[in-house]
């Protein structure tokens, strides 16, 4: 038993899987009537945003690049599969095509980023986001207000419809599985030579170049990966809500996504979930019931306070908590008359 625990402690990949197993309880609880099924939808949102935040973290945390167009790519995911599936294409093909399209836009931004830096790059991505938003609301194939996706057939085997409760739980399970896979993918990228190259690039581009890191290759990698994560988040939105609105993918959502990464803890994996939970989940799960409309003010204050006191993210609360436990322990030991070791 203890050897199992040790194994889990040493392997983040096992931790991700265990986390997924815990999270999937949310799919079963509404069926038993323990929690409201709207709670499951909030967790679905949390999973979707976590996937997007994992990609944004690669960009913001590990590569030191910023994007204000993330929401646009989420929209590309949701609306993309909507358009392709309405054309009659199977779900899998729609996903592949959507990912291809947004990877191309991501590559375009990556190329652009070779010339443009810092705030100019941030606002250049805002340009892309605004152009995408205009396209979503004006082009006829996106249906003006949104696209109804309807039941999704996976691999030609099972068709899942969100209006039936058990099937909605199954969709939620798919979301959890994708989240765990994306967490492992993000972890693998960071721990590979690509991750090391990205981090070298974020510290000093000139030094990285001198060590043989190709800026072109890794900027493209960073932007394409981040857009793919965002698009996958959007696709998950399409699968779960089976409806793709055109108007919600704006600058505010992009800012919120950055807030999630920053509040959770840059360069951390569980931190992304924590950040999404604090910025998005907390207000929807508890604050709206307890405080009503004040939840907006409260979220704002929360973001500011967290950034002021934990500039490296809330994951570091855990470190402080451990230190606090140690402190208490030493106090108790002293009172017992035992001299602390070490």
């Amino acid at each position: 038993m203890t050897s199992w625990l040790k194994k889990i402690q040493q392997s983040p990949r096992l931790q991700f899987i265990l986390f997924g197993v815990l999270l999937s309880s949310m799919a079963i609880l509404p069926l038993l009537g323990v929690v409201r099924s709207s709670t499951m939808s909030i967790y679905a949102y949390i999973i979707i945003y976590t996937v997007v935040a994992l990609g944004l973290n690669l960009l913001l945390g590990f590569s030191g690049l910023i994007s204000l167009g993330t929401a646009g790519f989420m929209g590309a995911g949701a609306l993309g599969i909507g358009v392709f599936m309405n054309m009659g294409l199977p779900f899998e093909l729609a996903v592949v095509l959507t990912l291809l399209v947004s990877a191309m836009i991501g590559a375009f931004i990556g190329l652009f980023s070779l010339r443009v830096n810092s705030i100019y790059l941030a606002i250049a991505t805002l340009f892309v986001g605004e152009i995408l938003r205009q396209i979503y609301s004006q082009v006829a194939i996106f249906g003006g207000e949104g696209i109804n996706i309807g039941p999704v057939r996976f691999f030609g085997l099972i068709e899942l419809n969100r209006s039936l409760r058990p099937e909605r739980s199954l969709i939620f399970l798919i979301l959890v599985i994708v989240l765990v896979v994306m967490m492992i993918v993000a972890y693998n990228i960071v721990k590979s030579s690509t991750g090391r190259a990205l981090m070298a690039m974020s510290r000093s581009e000139n030094a990285a170049q001198a060590m043989g890191v190709s800026i072109l290759k890794y900027r493209l990698t960073a932007f394409i990966t981040a857009t793919l994560f965002a698009t996958i988040g959007g696709i998950l939105y399409g699968i779960y809500f089976q409806d793709a609105p055109t108007r919600q993918w704006d600058l505010n959502l992009s800012l919120f996504l950055i807030a999630m990464v920053v509040v959770g803890g840059i360069k951390s994996f569980f931190g992304m979930f924590l950040g999404v939970f604090i910025v998005h989940g907390l207000s929807d799960l508890f604050l709206k019931d307890w405080l009503g409309d004040v939840s907006f003010i409260f979220s704002g204050v929360l973001i500011i306070v967290v950034i002021l006191f934990y500039p490296y993210g809330t994951v570091h609360i855990w470190v402080d908590f451990k230190r606090f436990l140690k402190y208490i322990k030493s106090k108790i030991d002293k009172r017992k008359g035992v001299t602390p070791r070490g």
Binding site: I66, F256, V262, F296, G300, I303, I307
Partner: peptide, 30 residues
């Protein structure tokens, strides 16, 4: 808000201004 955040990283500082937006938007109806 801004002065206490002098040592915060530039990206986090931008997100602080998002916090200001939320506070203002939340306050307006009241």
């Amino acid at each position: 808000i801004i002065r206490p955040a002098a040592r915060v990283s530039p990206i986090s500082k931008q997100i602080i201004t998002l916090g200001i937006i939320l506070i203002i938007v939340g306050m307006l109806p009241y």
